[in-house]
Amino acid sequence: MEGDIAEMGKFIGAGLATMGLGGAGIGVGHIAGNFLAGALRNPSAAPGQMANLFVGIAFAEALGIFSFLIALLLMFAV
């Protein structure tokens, strides 16, 4: 391994940045789980809330995608 210190730092940083995706996973799981809990209580209201479900998942996911983007930037662009 004849890489330099900066190269190593990039890889470590990219690896650390991917941890942010775990937060997005928690958030998306939380939304989907709560939706399911609500839908089981009141199944007749569930189809009308599908749009809100997807919007909420999209917002939660966006922040995870940011950390993924930072990882990619560290790997390839810095």
Binding site: F59, A62, L63, I65, F66
Partner: peptide
């Protein structure tokens, strides 16, 4: 930013 990165990032990943 989030609107574009979400779409591009998901597909790229």
């Amino acid at each position: 930013l989030s609107h574009s990165i979400r779409l591009g990032g998901n597909l790229m990943a």
